[in-house]
Design a protein around this nucleic acid. Structure first.
Length: 256
DNA sequence: ATGGCCACCGAGGGTGGA
């Protein structure tokens, strides 16, 4: 069983890249964030033609999350975590005995801003939702773009004064982990942990990045964890010649 | 080399991303 998460930065612009990813990597479950399209523009038929099911929580211009899967998801919750009702940042479904929760966490912009306060509120609501879901699902994974750097060595330029790195954000993530979840990340020799690199200043080329895309598993899922991999190849222009403009995030996949 | 912002809306530049 392969589960992946990918902030694609527009599902329609990135459609060729996503279809190639489905072909090349054959994920059983692919969770997308930042669809940036309305419901009627979601490319469902393209995923169906590839042999996949899909559920989606869409919003025009901003946000949007979906789950693409080889089997049909059951008991789907459409945007269960909402502080502002118009922001589509969450979706969940059950596949066999596995509950999958897909989040696009608020960015927060800068420490102390209104968006930062909103981020912390959103994370607390997310924590409560996960706690409730854990009470009825032993095997559970929470994936997505968390917009939080878990540890100091997960960012090239870590500073507690910066957004994504602040104590309050990291404590909010820790409160979620304290529900009984574990970060599936496994360090690899000579490979940086990052999943996001700024488009600007050749950050990817220089490997100046952040690890902010996470997969958090319950203990009954973690015992089956075999592999963890960041698919950096999708960041190369040559990987998908049909759409050489890549997402600034790389997909992250676990194998169970 | 794996490369130097990108996508949105809308008609051009402002906004948001992280």
């Amino acid at each position: 069983m392969k589960i992946a998460t990918w902030n694609v930065n527009s599902v329609n612009v990135r459609l060729p890249n996503i279809l190639k990813y489905l072909k090349d990597y054959q994920p059983d479950i692919l969770c997308l964030q930042e669809l940036k399209c309305s419901e009627d523009k979601y490319p469902l038929e393209d995923f169906v033609a590839e042999g996949y099911h899909s559920i989606h929580a869409c919003q025009k211009t901003y946000n949007g999350v979906s789950i693409i899967s080889k089997s049909q998801g059951m008991d789907c919750h459409n945007n269960p975590v909402a502080v502002n009702d118009n922001e589509m940042r969450s979706i969940s479904a059950t596949f066999g005995d596995l509950r999958v929760i897909n989040f696009y966490v608020v960015n927060g912009q800068s420490i102390g801003s209104d968006k930062y306060i909103h981020k912390l509120k959103w994370l607390e609501k997310a924590r409560k939702y996960i706690k409730e879901q854990l009470s009825s699902h032993r095997k559970l994974v929470v994936v997505g773009d968390f917009n939080i750097v878990p540890n100091e060595n997960d960012a090239s330029n870590f500073s507690p004064n910066d957004i994504l790195c602040s104590d309050k954000e990291r404590k909010a993530l820790q409160a979620i982990l304290d529900l009984g979840l574990t970060d599936c990340y496994k360090p690899q020799d000579k490979v940086s942990p990052y999943t996001w690199w700024d488009y600007r200043a050749g950050a990817f080329h220089r490997d100046i990045g952040y690890r902010i895309d996470l997969l958090l598993g319950s203990s009954s899922l973690l015992k089956d964890l075999q592999h963890y991999e960041v698919h950096r190849d999708t960041r190369h222009k040559s990987w998908c010649p049909e759409q050489p403009k890549t997402s600034d995030h790389a997909p992250v996949m676990i194998t169970l």
